[in-house]
Design a protein around this nucleic acid. Sequence first.
RNA 1: GCGGGAGUAGCUCAGCUGGCCAGAGCAUCAGCCUUCCAAGCUGAGGGUCGCGGGUUCGAAUCCCGUCUCCCGCUCCA
Length: 521
Amino acid sequence: MYKCNEYVYFCDMANYEEVFKKVVAHAKEYGFIFQSSELYDGLAAVYDYGPNGSELKNNIRNYWWKSMVNMNENIVGLDSSIFMHPTTWKASGHVDAFNDPLIDNKDSKKRYRADVLIEDYVAKIEGKIEKEVKKAIKRFGDSFDKEQFVGTNPRVLGYKSKCMSIMQRFSEAMAANKLDDVKTLIKELGIVCPVSGTKNWTDVRQFNLMFKTQMGSTADGASDLYLRPETAQGIFVNFLNVQKTARMKIPFGIAQTGKAFRNEIVARQFIFRMREFEQMEMQFFVRPGKEMKWYEHWKDSRMKWHLSLGIDKELFRFHDHDNLAHYANAACDIEFKFPFGFKELEGIHSRTDFDLKSHQKHSGRKVQYFDPEINESYIPYVVETSIGLDRMFLTILSNSYKEEKVNGENRLVLSIPALLAPVKAAVLPLTKKDGLPEKAREILSLLQCDFLCQYEEKDSIGKRYRRQDAIGTPYCITVDHQSLEDNTVTVRDRDTMAQERVAIDRLYTLVSKKVDFRNYL
RNA sequence: GCGGGAGUAGCUCAGCUGGCCAGAGCAUCAGCCUUCCAAGCUGAGGGUCGCGGGUUCGAAUCCCGUCUCCCGCUCCA
């Protein structure tokens, strides 16, 4: 297990926002994260990973992958494409469930779904019909024939046709993608904001979850595609391929990491909610009825994974979902206490057979598994673990950022778990003369095949230590004059700042042990 | 989309009652020092003051417009 040293937290809870700003500034200054397209004033909610950031991100991804694929013989990997057949997103529910027309009231600043406003309005008219019916019941008593009344009463007929024409206009406008007409309709109907009571509406805008693009080099021959909003569907669509070719038996899982794209209505909080982000997902296929057992298993297993990185367990919590999505029968999040509060880091969902069943229906192919144990074919149930790689990155980064007092001076250190640290060791000649640089470069060549190392000779040794602290390098290896005589160096530990005299031929083992996967999981 | 805040060197900022020609610290680079926990010495590079327009003899500084970022609200699989 990674051991957390006792750090003096420079900033307390009240300064959380300040800490967050510092983390963001630090991330830029030391080449972890840059605003996308900064040269052109930036692109909102998109970020780039710099030299240290891309290393850290790779290391997190690898740690996840090894934990999932290497350490579970019933989990295999997959790398499916970002482009998928458009029907995929029909089947998954993304096309229908997530493209709502939105409208804002300028006075109350409230946002509504335009279709809901119109439907509510129609519901009001339908309420009037009910009133007419009730009145008629009073008037006619037992001899009242509701169907006849509703079919002939001029006032009711008027209401009914009004409802129908409204809904028809609405669906025509939506079908033709004429959002102006939707707004016109809302205005004509005199719909007011329930909060402000005014008709001061903005234009209707379409909210599309998915990014649309075209495949095909010529515009007229092109077909519309989406950039995937989740990697999971690539796994589901390949369920049979993987199961058959890897000869997997249920229960088994398929793991995948990769980019996903979502048009968030608001995308903020640094890399927490981005429009382009990376997921690490594992879909675990089980026999129907066994899903709750596996759901509990993966909840437990995933929490252990997080704690294996040595982060304080008080900073994690489970959050069970009350309102389940259309595909789930149980769902929870693992939340992490980010500088801006507890937020979702990973989701663990029991997705039932919704996805595979839907793909079976839309493809017309049998998407099933024959279970020899019970001699039956069935559509497997799925338990999903889905973690945001970028969110995990932010977890590590914000948790690692420490400012401590050392002899009255501030020391800024990223206490990144050694396994994940971008640079594993820095090799530093105490001075740049007397053959020390040459000796240092020899040491560098001993290590650099297996560990990312840095060589530095500029500035005083203390300054170089602090620079390495700022990017979270676990070990600094310093070559001095004694090294030339007895082939030993000093190894300085990032967290304790303790120094140890070590023989050069022991360095490889020392660093290996420090960053060994075995220490963690 | 609305409301609030902000945009000056890689970073943190000063200058903003209009007029030393755009500054400081840190960082970067070269050299000196040869030093085991940063900020020693010398020198150098780097900024169309977000962008566009206007007022003025003259604007980073005033006015208008515009863009971008950050925070809050609305949405959230």
